[in-house]
Simulated assay, not measured.
Amino acid sequence: LWQEGHTAHATSEEAMQESLKMLDVYAAFAENYMAMPVIKGEKTASERFPGAVNTYCIEAMMQDKKALQAGTSHFLGQHFSRGFNIKYLSAEDKEEFAWTTSWGASTRLIGGLIMTHSDDNGLVLPPKLAPAQVVILPIIHKEEDRATILAYCDSLAKELRDIRYHDQRLGVEMDTRELTGGEKAWSWVKKGVPIRVEIGNKEVARNSVFMGRRDKEYKDRQVVSRTEFLATIVNQLDEMQHNLFNRAKTFQEQNMAMITSLDDFYAYFKSDGGFALAHWNGDAEIEAKMKQELSVTIRCIPFSMQDKKGKCIFSGDDNAQMAIFAKAY
């Protein structure tokens, strides 16, 4: 997974719009598909992409409270077009240097997905990104029951694959390995498949399924009629998608603190700190000192707090900007 783009524009305004538009695209993908909440903002000069005029980013909090830069978009001005002689023919029939952008996301999104949602039992996949949304587990104790149970599972799988989930057919796996029910179920828990369905003699006789969800405890399983299961599967998957996002968003909010003094700042990061919101006067020497002494960097100047000026906790200067500090990958 590596996605990167470069564009050239006739005006500075067009290039800036493209840079911010792509940042919105990355943020929407992270939140709407990965169920990973992010904070949009601008990098400081020391964290900026070399040669860029502005670097914009999305920052996510992992379960160890460290930050992950999950995507970046750069407004390059004319620095690279002049360096590489990138020109266009203007409406006035004159050669002009282009205004350029660069933006990208990489394999770190896979790590971000794992570190945002997974638990001690293994992988947890948001339904919108899962290769399969449902796995069917035939539970066969007697050989004479095999044909009946497998036929039931096959017909259920067919019905599920005919259901549309966000513009694609549901992905369905069926595990016919010669393993116990527990061994089968746990192997799919570790793989993070959103919904597990166990089918044995009881389920066939009752025209039902025994269902478990990956966003709940393993033992939190229930018998659901086949009709109800098929009718509610899309809603259940959407509920799981929302639950995963809300769980991660709550974690982020619970581990973000407003810091108003230097002593509190040091104490926060010498303990179990997460994201610290603090006013900073823009001094690169202060930024470097925090990195050296606490292994903390400014993750971004958040867009949502650009108007929240205040007193710098490091220097006492007024009219300082709000920044997000954190340890990071």
Rank of each mutant, 00 (worst) to 15 (best):
C153P: 01
D154G: 06
D154C: 07
R161Q: 06
D162F: 02
I163R: 07
R164T: 13
R164K: 09
Y165K: 04
Y165N: 05
Y165I: 12
D167L: 07
Q168R: 12
Q168N: 10
G171E: 11
E173K: 09
E173V: 10
E173L: 11
M174V: 10
R177W: 01
L179D: 10
L179S: 06
L179M: 07
T180C: 08
G181V: 05
G182C: 02
G182T: 11
S187N: 13
W188N: 05
K190W: 03
G192S: 11
V193H: 00
I195L: 09
V197Y: 06
V197Q: 02
E198K: 01
G200W: 07
N201L: 14
N201C: 12
V204L: 12
V209A: 01
F210Y: 05
M211R: 15
G212N: 02
D215T: 11
R221H: 11
R221K: 12
Q222P: 07
V224M: 14
V224A: 05
S225H: 07
S225P: 00
T227I: 04
F229R: 03
F229N: 02
I233Y: 03
N235T: 13
Q236G: 14
Q236H: 08
L237D: 10
L237V: 13
L237M: 15
Q241A: 12
H242F: 14
L244I: 13
N246E: 14
A248H: 11
A248E: 10
K249A: 15
T250H: 06
F251L: 15
Q252L: 13
E253S: 01
Q254F: 07
Q254I: 09
N255Q: 08
M256C: 12
A257Q: 13
A257R: 14
I259T: 13
S261G: 08
S261L: 06
